[in-house]
Design a protein around this nucleic acid. Structure first.
Lengths: 154, 154
DNA sequence: AGAGTTAATACGAATTTCGTAATGTTCAAG
DNA sequence: CTTGAACATTACGAAATTCGTATTAACTCT
């Protein structure tokens, strides 16, 4: 169990047991918060793709259709359909900008922004449930570890 | 910021800032591991439902079609279609048990079990990446906190 | 101007999900 | 023993989604 040099920095591989433990725990973890997600989705009956697109548009007002498609990794035609649905539901608006009239500028409507807020509230609710499951002195640890993993280079 | 009594136990609500921090970190967290999931899915081109069904069957050999449908929250007809696809790909087998011939007993084939193993390996790989992002003395903390959240009652 | 590129959309094919109806099986009551 | 209800599964068809191809409109560079 001696530390070994890797790429010029001390790097110890996680043990097989650690990986096993975290894998099993994370399965239960995701399972627990998947049901909450499914329950929240039933309210608005918004397809997963549409919800992601709406979120992106609300965070990038005036963005183009292609931007959303690239970010979410779907075909432009698929995104066109998704935008159609969202426009039909009055959650986003298509506009032709004067400076580039072949593009469309997407913006979220008031209703769309409200749906995004509800969506985010559901997400926050899940995160609050995570924190409440811990003792107060453990909560900062969870935040710090999550940030560290999320922002790691590789 | 005084502790307050709730349901007979000490219970301090997470602060709004803590919830905010964890929410933002968790967004980056899930985004980072979503791409890995998508890359792994491209290998086998297995639909999400089929992958979940295959996993359930491999963990519950001889189970019925209705069991899988109930566990995954889909209509029995949808599960029948999913089983059709998996049978066509030779990943699971339908068998009519002698003692109850109106049911079918589902079991994973050797190929199906192999695919499950690869699937699990991808999952483990993601968990290993999480652990590698942390210092060795932090890894036990992550495991412990994840288990605590996953197994909390409410 | 004119060719080539870019952004978005219309259309059609393939696939998936799910509701309704049908098939075959089991169980219980008469 | 028969008959009828309940059950597990499947067949079929409708609705919706994704995506590839072709098309339209606009921009850019020579």
């Amino acid at each position: 169990m001696a530390p070994q040099k890797c790429f010029g920095r001390d790097m110890i591989e996680p043990t097989a047991e650690q990986v096993e433990q975290l894998t099993r725990a994370f399965e239960r973890f995701t399972r627990r918060f998947k049901v909450a997600e499914a329950a929240a989705a039933a309210d608005n009956a918004l397809i997963a793709l549409d919800a992601q697109a709406l979120l992106f548009v609300s965070e990038h007002p005036g963005c183009g259709l292609g931007d959303v498609a690239r970010d979410l990794g779907v075909a432009p035609t698929t995104m066109s359909s998704a935008v159609d649905r969202l426009v039909r539901k009055a959650m986003i608006e298509r506009r032709r900008p004067e400076d580039n009239r072949r593009a469309v500028a997407l913006t979220a409507t008031a209703k769309g922004r409200q749906v995004v807020e509800e969506q985010k509230a559901g997400y926050q609710k899940a995160c609050r449930a995570m924190l409440r499951s811990l003792d107060p002195d453990e909560r900062g640890d969870l935040i710090r570890l999550t940030e560290k993993i999320a922002d790691a280079e590789t």
